[in-house]
Design a binder for these strands. Structure first.
Length: 203
DNA sequence: TGAATGATGCGCT
DNA sequence: GCGCATCATTCAT
């Protein structure tokens, strides 16, 4: 049973959305290709009060998509060569999003390997930059409606995985928040040595 | 096993 | 100009 997540899923508090995205499937359809992967690692970025959130400085042209309705894709370019995919959460006017950090490849694997010839399957999507490179996502896809036919998240009826939390990766401010969520039993998460498995949350 | 570093471009002060 | 929600490679222990 495959069920596309609706806008009401994304309209909830960001921490709940982040946790519930684990074990779901991210799907990207282009005219010529189909990609799908099981989400195993995400991070929450929650509003202007969160110093690590791109909305912390207030509204700018870059972060405007986060101020809009939930259930849209926020994709940005960073470090001169990578892209990161986020899901906009919370009602309109609340700038928050969930960063997709890692997934387990399911469909479209040959194309992923073409874009990262040296990566083994297990790590080819383990990192936000690697994920976007493998899926071919760029700022051209920024603002896509996640309830539309192109880019969306699917519930395939899997039970919620065991979840662990840790500080978010690669940020300086806001490290005190354990807002990185991972599937505790997945081998495809990024930064395997960050001890996140010690902070066990629930099944 | 872990620290340091270069590649590389854009948003913002 | 500086810093950045990254990654792969190199170098030291």
């Amino acid at each position: 049973m495959k069920k596309k997540l609706t806008r009401s899923f994304y309209a909830r508090p960001t921490l709940e959305v982040a946790r519930d995205l684990l074990g779901k499937y991210i799907v990207y359809r282009t005219p010529s290709e189909l990609f799908a992967a099981r989400i195993v690692e995400v991070e929450a970025y929650v509003g202007e009060q969160d110093p690590a959130c791109h909305a912390a400085p207030g509204p700018t042209p870059r972060n405007q998509i986060m101020y809009g309705s939930p259930g849209f894709a926020y994709i940005y370019f960073i470090y001169g060569m990578y892209h990161c995919l986020n899901f906009v959460t919370e009602p309109k006017g609340h700038p928050a999003a969930v960063l997709l950090r890692a997934a387990e490849p399911d469909e479209g694997i040959p194309s992923m390997i073409e874009r990262a010839p040296r990566s083994p399957h297990r790590t080819i999507l383990s990192g936000p930059g690697k994920f976007c490179r493998a899926f071919g996502l760029t700022v051209k896809q920024n603002g896509l409606d996640l309830t539309g036919p192109t880019l969306f998240v699917e519930d395939r009826g899997e039970a919620s995985p065991e979840i662990a939390q840790s500080p978010r990766i690669g940020i300086k401010n806001g490290v005190e928040h354990l807002w990185r969520f991972i599937d505790r039993n997945s081998e495809a998460v990024s930064c395997p040595r960050t001890m996140a498995r010690r902070t066990y949350v629930r099944t």
